[in-house]
Structures are given as C-alpha cells and as structure tokens.
Design a protein around this nucleic acid. Sequence first.
DNA 1: GCCAACGTTGGC
DNA 2: GCCAACGTTGGC
Length: 137
Amino acid sequence: MAYWLVKSEPDAFSWDEQVANNVEPWTGVRNHQAKKNLMAMAVGDLAFFYHSNVGREIVGVVEIVRAAYPDPTAPQGGWVCVDVRAVGPMPTPVTLARIKADPVLSDLALVRQSRLSVVPVSDAHWSHLCRMGGWAA
DNA sequence: GCCAACGTTGGC
DNA sequence: GCCAACGTTGGC
C-alpha cells in the first residue's frame, strides 16, 4: 500500500466537488513523470488532495478505487487516469507554508518538484502530515 | 503581476 | 543531438 499526493486547482476542480461526486476520474494529467506515478497506483492506495494556486493546502484524503486506465479526455490517447473516492476532509488543512517550515518535510516531492501534479509520499511523511492535519490515520 | 522551474518545439 | 525560444505551472 502506497501513499500519494494529487493536486488540483480549486477553480478547475475542488475538494467540495470531489466530495459531492464521491468517485471521480482523475483525468487531464499530461506529464510523463506524473503518468508514471499514476501507473504505479494500486487500488486501496491513499492520496492527499491538495489545492494548488488558490489555498495551497492539503484539504482531504482520497482512496484509489480503480487503477490506471486510458484517459478518455486525451484525444490522441497515450495518457492514463485513475478513479479516486473521497475518504474525508483534513480536520485542519495543512498549508504549504507549514510544510515548507518543517525540516522533516524538506525533501517532500511536493516541495522539491513543485510543478509535478501527482507525487509519491513516503510512509513517514504520510504519518507526519496526518498528525499535522489532525487526521486519524 | 512577476518570476523561477521546467517541459516542448523547432532551427541548425 | 544541441540549444534558444516559448509556453505552462504554481508560488509569492
């Protein structure tokens, strides 16, 4: 079982919409490294839902409920998506500012590769971030 | 609105 | 295959 973090601009697709839809295909990823991460996801993996640009904080947790399959929004094919289900909101959203201020998280992929929209999270970082957000893992 | 990081494109 | 130009992402 692995952990991830996925980013969405709330103007495009927000946590509230994820909760309303419950299960949502995570489409539109057009970066090879992000694609590689999507392909590595397994059913049952958990991911933080992060609001980029507006908010800049981890707002919730989702579960991967369908492994990588061809992204229907990619006209030429070649890209993949997964289905994610809302598990619950972060009791206290974890802001990027707090993440950056914490030396334990200095090598988090979110910080080191800020433009990558699907990144892995180590077990240690996952539990650390859960503690920061008041999430009972 | 600006800028840094980084991916893509196209000329050579 | 190299590199400059350009576009996009995302933080500030």
